[in-house]
Nucleic acid binder design. Structure first.
Lengths: 192, 192
DNA sequence: TCGATATCTTGTCAATGGAAAGATATGGTG
DNA sequence: CACCATATCTTTCCATTGACAAGATATCGA
């Protein structure tokens, strides 16, 4: 745990944290393994042992992100039971964990076929569609329609989140993003 | 125009085309200026003269993208007059020009303060919101509500497009993306 | 014709990702 | 406790890249 030791203690965690910080600052494109190693106070080759290569590190980060997102959605569904709040929670996760979120949807940056990653991604997808299926009939959520309703809600929340993260929304600085997202999400049919 | 000449003829265009091709293949992160130079048959330093640096090239590509998107939206609004089709056109542009579209929303990759770029981006934004303002009153498009309605439509189209591009939609291969987008966009209030 | 300029090349450098080989610490087994 | 297999980390090295500087060649205007 202490510094200046040959063994770092938890270098893997330190590198993931440093990566999230660096990506939040300058985006995934500017990420440098050697810079992460410097931040953690280890040699430039140390990250290789834990993640294999750069895509390997981003695979771990994306996996962590999908896991966290699944947990946030499941938690929201359990506490609020609201379809609308599920979308709000999606946007809230994206904006409060922007590094994880940005990497998650860039499969060209990581090993998209990694088993742990695909499993986490599926759990997140299930958490999302479980909330859609909660909708009572008559709100368009019956049978095969669930897929389309879920896709619409997912697209809306995802689009708002990515536009906000890219700085494309003029009102970005004025209002908390999840508040603004709530107003937008309300415009979806069978929301509530 | 012919090959093997000292002057390429239109190297700037050739580099932009090669960049779009390379990005469509492997994503913006894997883009290499030297690879573009090789594809165009020029020396590794030739691109510098036309674009200054790597962000400069991506600035030009993003500017081209915003200009093309503005044209596509304006054209759609003029011919169809449909709010729904405006969203469909947005998705169609994104999926048929994925390299341009992907770069456009990654301001960390280019010079976001470039005058030509900001002008093109504003034109695209105006084309988008002009279509929203076409909506007759009683469909929620009156006054200040236009902003929110436009934001919802934009988010929905943008989210669908980015999810499709990232390969996150299982039905990606089955159906043309703009067709699938139409069904999703219909779920927005005051659409049509 | 001739100089100014645009375009492109060659040469060079620091930084990066990755591989190879070695050093050091940790943990299990007797 | 002794000992070794293994995990963790370091050092060294190489090819590639983006960027810069200086020079070569082509185009254009006076």
């Amino acid at each position: 745990m202490a510094k200046e030791r040959y063994h770092h203690g938890d270098l893997r965690r330190a590198l993931l944290d440093a990566a999230a910080e660096a990506i939040a600052e300058s985006g995934p494109a500017a990420l440098s393994l050697r810079d992460l190693a410097r931040r953690a106070g280890v040699s430039h080759a140390a990250p290789t042992h834990h993640f294999g290569d750069k895509p390997g590190l981003l695979t771990a980060l994306a996996t962590e992100g999908f896991t966290q997102l699944a947990a946030a959605l499941t938690e929201t569904r359990a506490t609020t039971g609201s379809f609308l709040e599920l979308g709000v929670a999606y946007v809230r996760y994206a904006t409060t964990h922007r590094a994880h979120f940005e990497v998650m949807w860039r499969p060209d940056l990581y090993h998209a076929d990694d088993p742990a990653l695909t499993a986490a991604r599926e759990r997140a997808g299930e958490a999302l569609y479980a909330g859609v299926a909660d909708l009572p009939d008559g709100q368009g959520a019956a049978g095969a329609d669930v897929r389309e309703a879920g896709l619409a809600a997912w697209s809306l929340a995802h689009g708002f989140a990515t536009l906000w993260l890219s700085g494309s929304l003029p009102q970005s600085s004025e209002e908390p993003p999840d508040e603004a997202a709530r107003a937008v999400l309300r415009r979806l049919n069978h929301g509530g």
